[in-house]
Simulated assay, not measured.
Amino acid sequence: MPPAQPGYGRQFDKRHAITLTATAAITKYRFVSYDGTLTPTLPSTGLKDALGVAEENAAVGEAVSVVTDFSYLVEASAAIALGDYVKPAADGSGKAAVGALADHCGRALGVATAAGQLVEVQILPHRHA
């Protein structure tokens, strides 16, 4: 995958992580919910809100480390500009999509020019409109 930020390479400032048991298949660099699944774009309950970002892949029943504080790399679902609010993509993949002030779970600290690229995201409490 291309660098998270042109000229800077892939970077992040992981402060805290917790271990969850995956209740669905988890893909690294994607938003994970409190219930151990990939985060949907419009959570129906608080357990579906984004807790953080997966550090590795995990199958159902496996332990997965989830970064919960300051920043981590997230796979983009489309282009993301520096400073954009981000939220989980509409396709339920847990990838980052452009959010809004009233609907987000992070803020881009880098850029992604296309889907599939990694972007450093500041992890914030999940907000809904």
Results as ranks from 00 to 15, higher is better:
2 P>H: 09
3 P>L: 00
5 Q>A: 06
9 G>T: 03
9 G>Y: 01
10 R>A: 05
10 R>W: 05
10 R>T: 02
12 F>V: 07
19 T>Q: 08
19 T>L: 12
20 L>A: 08
24 A>N: 09
26 I>K: 08
30 R>N: 10
30 R>D: 01
31 F>W: 08
35 D>W: 07
35 D>C: 15
36 G>K: 13
40 P>L: 04
41 T>I: 07
42 L>N: 15
42 L>F: 11
47 L>N: 07
48 K>F: 06
51 L>V: 02
51 L>N: 07
56 E>F: 05
57 N>Q: 08
57 N>G: 04
60 V>D: 03
60 V>A: 06
62 E>D: 11
63 A>Y: 01
67 V>G: 03
69 D>G: 10
69 D>F: 03
70 F>E: 04
72 Y>C: 05
72 Y>H: 14
74 V>I: 07
77 S>Q: 08
78 A>E: 09
79 A>I: 11
80 I>P: 09
81 A>H: 03
89 A>R: 02
90 A>W: 00
91 D>M: 06
92 G>Y: 05
93 S>C: 03
94 G>D: 09
94 G>Q: 07
96 A>T: 05
98 V>E: 11
100 A>M: 09
101 L>Q: 15
102 A>L: 15
102 A>F: 13
103 D>H: 14
103 D>M: 12
103 D>A: 15
104 H>I: 14
104 H>T: 13
105 C>K: 10
108 A>Y: 04
108 A>N: 13
108 A>E: 07
111 V>L: 15
113 T>L: 06
114 A>Q: 10
115 A>P: 02
120 E>D: 12
120 E>T: 13
124 L>F: 07
124 L>S: 12
124 L>H: 08
128 H>W: 14
